[in-house]
Design a protein around this nucleic acid. Structure first.
Length: 463
RNA sequence: UCCGCGAUAGCUCAAUGGUAGAGCAGCCGGCUGUUAACCGGCGGGUUGUAGGUUCGAGUCCUACUCGCGGAGCCA
């Protein structure tokens, strides 16, 4: 008697084996011929295994015929080739143990489909559905691909801090971390005295591990960080979360071209792995979620990413003969409508835009010789828009300080970061990829709240 | 944060300002190596909240709450 998964039991090689299966009932169909069919799922794969429960079972009338959707069971039996259409194998049960019943009157999941909006209100039960099981497995695969890709290339995984005491990229997008009693905060000169706080200064949840991971790139060479990231922006859209996962590689002695090469290879690896290792789930997405998903992924996989300077992109947009909701002009940031036009209609393939105006990008991006642009790059893909943002970093101390002042930042607050340029500075580059947006792209799911187990958005931190 | 749409049974949705319904799910029965099974019966409602207009409001008006879509910000 081997304990096996539903995924194993569904394979024809399992025929003839005596096995034990553990899982949850998806549906039950009774036959007056004196037996029942139980669709069993244990999360190991998209499909269920059909269990045939004969009427001779001692608990057939008392328990088996009353197994509801959602009940947990242990099944002992023999895997057999299925005589009927719909599945290659089935399990003839010699024992069915009901472990935990699920009251049919109150259990919210039904055999039939539910809207994603409704499932969001029962986020603790939705992994028991086809779609969210598939998402969970895909998320796992993408996480594994991220580690595999970088580890195989000799990258070092660095754990950057979740709590940061430096107010990195400016103002209001940060969650404050404090142990101060909000009802009676210590005060000095009428303002809250953060020197009395846990860290003796204001502290926040990280918005990016980039600055810290640069420190390790400038000593270990090729490194990456992969973890949760927090934004307190009041964005209520299908593409934003207050808590999300981001992978950020950072490489010493890399220029912007090296950075683009890596980003392109990385994205293609993630897609290839998903198609190879999540084939059944990807097929489910193509059939039930987004019919275009394979075409879109093949397009990205099989085309070189078109690399276009920002200045050229602006020219293309100006000559497109279209009326834009937001004006196109050199120095203006590109809007969603512009990015989508470039990747979906003009080039019809993935596009990497680079060399953006210095006024549009953060202080740490390297200034080009023209003095007007910086070595920034954004990867745009059809169907989603921007999926990766990166840059070659400014390694020259004097220019970096100048850029900080230009953007109203105080170099004194970044002493440790400036030390990386003061002592043994090197050209280096990196990028960031949002995990959830990648899952949206891969699955064709429409709402980012449905590709993370427990979404956190403005006004919502349930579960 | 701005603009738009919505909220009715457990779920998905109907209902000219005039007695709140259907399908699915559930329960009971029937039938069947079934496949989102099928057939019959039964139970199920403070129509998001608070006001207002009206003889009469699920329906019209106001505010609020929540959800969704678009935009901004961004990953």
């Amino acid at each position: 008697m081997d304990k096996i998964t539903v995924a194993e039991a569904r394979r024809v090689e399992a025929v003839g084996r005596q096995v034990r299966l553990r899982g949850w009932v998806r549906t039950r169909r009774d036959s007056k011929g004196g037996f029942s069919f139980i669709e069993l799922n244990d999360g190991s794969c998209q499909g269920n295994v059909q269990v045939v429960a004969p009427g001779e079972l001692g608990n057939y009338e008392t328990e088996v015929k009353h197994l509801h959707t959602g009940a947990s069971v242990v099944i002992d039996g023999e895997v057999k080739a299925s005589p009927a259409k719909g599945q290659a194998t089935e399990v003839l049960a010699s024992r069915v143990e009901r472990v935990g019943d699920a009251d049919a009157e109150s259990y919210p999941l039904q055999k039939k489909g539910h809207t994603f909006e409704f499932l969001r209100t029962i986020a603790h039960l939705r992994p028991r559905t086809n779609t969210f099981g598939a998402i969970a497995r895909l998320r796992n695969q993408v996480s594994k691909s991220i580690h595999d890709f970088f580890q195989e290339q000799g990258f070092l995984y660095v754990h950057t801090p979740i709590v940061t005491a430096s107010d990195c990229e400016g103002g209001g997008a940060l969650f404050r971390v404090t142990t101060i009693d909000p009802d009676s905060p210590p005060k000095v000169d009428g303002k809250v005295d953060y020197t009395k706080d846990f860290f003796h200064k204001p502290a926040y949840l990280t918005v990016s591990g980039q600055l810290q991971v640069e420190a390790f790139a400038c000593s270990m060479g090729k490194v990456y960080t992969f973890g949760p990231t927090f934004r307190a922006e009041n964005s209520n859209t299908p593409r934003h979360l207050a808590e999300f996962w981001m992978v950020e590689p950072e490489m010493a002695f890399f220029d912007l071209t090296d950075d683009m090469d890596l980003a392109e290879a990385f994205l293609k690896r993630i897609i290839r792995d998903a198609l190879t290792h999540c084939a059944e789930d990807m097929k489910f997405f193509a059939e039930r979620v987004d019919k275009e998903v394979f075409a879109r992924l093949e397009n990205v996989l099989n085309n070189p990413f078109r690399r276009v300077p920002y200045t050229e992109a602006v020219d293309i947009l100006l000559k497109a003969g279209k009326t834009w909701e937001f004006p196109v002009a050199w120095g203006n940031d590109l809007q969603s409508e512009h990015e989508r036009y470039l990747t979906e209609q003009h080039f019809k393939c993935p596009v990497i835009l680079y060399d953006y105006p210095r006024t549009l990008k953060p202080f740490y991006m390297r200034v080009n010789d023209d003095g007007k642009t910086v070595r920034a790059m954004d990867v745009l893909v059809p169907g989603v828009g921007e999926i990766i943002g990166g840059s070659q970093r400014e390694e020259r101390l004097d220019i970096l300080e100048e850029r900080m002042r230009e953007q109203g930042l105080h170099p004194e607050g970044y002493a440790w970061y400036l030390d990386l340029r003061r002592y043994g500075t090197v050209p280096h580059a990196g990028f960031g990829l949002g995990l959830e947006r990648t899952i949206l792209f891969l699955s064709g799911m429409a709402n980012i709240r449905d590709v993370i187990p427990f979404p956190r958005t403005p006004g919502s931190a349930e579960f």
